[in-house]
């Protein structure tokens, strides 16, 4: 407990950076992910190919490598800190998973609706925006929530590039105090404050959705 008291500002700072990184990456990956999901289902072949390649590449390589790539290689040309590199990597990595989730959501919406909307004179974009996407998001909400939890957990990758997040600060405290056991338990509790309530809320949503079906 003395450990927590002495290092409380450090843990709190880490918690703040973890939260900040997660929120930025969440917003970014939602936009990118939705974009690539739509690209995968538009009629244009070239867009489908780009969408597909993007999703397959980022889903199948480790987040750590993407992070190192930004931190050590890209930053030679575009200046970015460890925090920025980690957050950008996190955003790109998660967007591939969100693209898959949103795509599945869109496909779950009855195909007749698109035809109906088009027959009523809406363009593809309008039909997507007003008819299909709102329903798709509602269907995909539990999976999107899970992706957000994964994102928070994966933000611990920032520790490898001096990203000042919770894991990084935890390692620093552990290296200084040698009390690994208590330090990592405290770090765990901070992470659970973010992820556990969200996880229970998603389970609640899933049950509700199941009953509705």
């Amino acid at each position: 407990m003395a450990l927590l008291q002495n290092n409380f500002p450090t843990f709190l700072q880490g918690f703040g950076y973890t939260l900040l990184s997660s929120i930025i990456a969440l917003i970014g990956s939602m936009i990118l992910g939705t974009g690539f999901a739509i690209m995968q289902i538009v009629p244009q072949k070239w867009a489908q190919v780009i969408g597909n390649v993007y999703v397959q590449v980022f889903r199948n390589i480790p987040l750590l490598i993407i992070t190192f790539f930004f931190f050590l290689v890209v930053s030679k040309y575009v200046k970015m800190s460890g925090f920025t590199s980690g957050t950008v990597a996190l955003m790109l990595y998660t967007s591939a998973f969100i693209a898959e989730t949103v795509r599945a959501g869109i496909l779950a919406v009855d195909g007749g609706q698109m035809e109906g909307a088009r027959a009523n004179g809406l363009s593809f974009g309008q039909a997507m925006q007003y008819i299909i996407l709102p329903q798709a998001f509602r269907i995909a909400l539990p999976s999107l929530g899970n992706q957000f939890i994964n994102l928070v957990k994966n933000s611990s990758i920032l520790a490898f590039v001096g990203g000042l997040d919770l894991m990084y600060q935890g390692n620093m405290v552990a290296a200084n105090t040698f009390d690994t056991f208590s330090t990592y338990i405290i770090v765990a509790i901070f992470y659970l404050i973010l992820t556990l309530p969200l996880s229970y809320y998603i389970q609640h949503l899933e049950r509700k959705l199941k009953r509705a079906l």
């Binding site: 957990k153 611990s156 990758i157 894991m167 690994t180 770090v187 765990a188 992470y191 659970l192 556990l196």
Partner: peptide
């Protein structure tokens, strides 16, 4: 367990 980062579990 599911809601903790894997990295944390490895370090632990």
């Amino acid at each position: 367990i599911r809601n903790l980062p894997l990295l944390l579990i490895i370090f632990f």
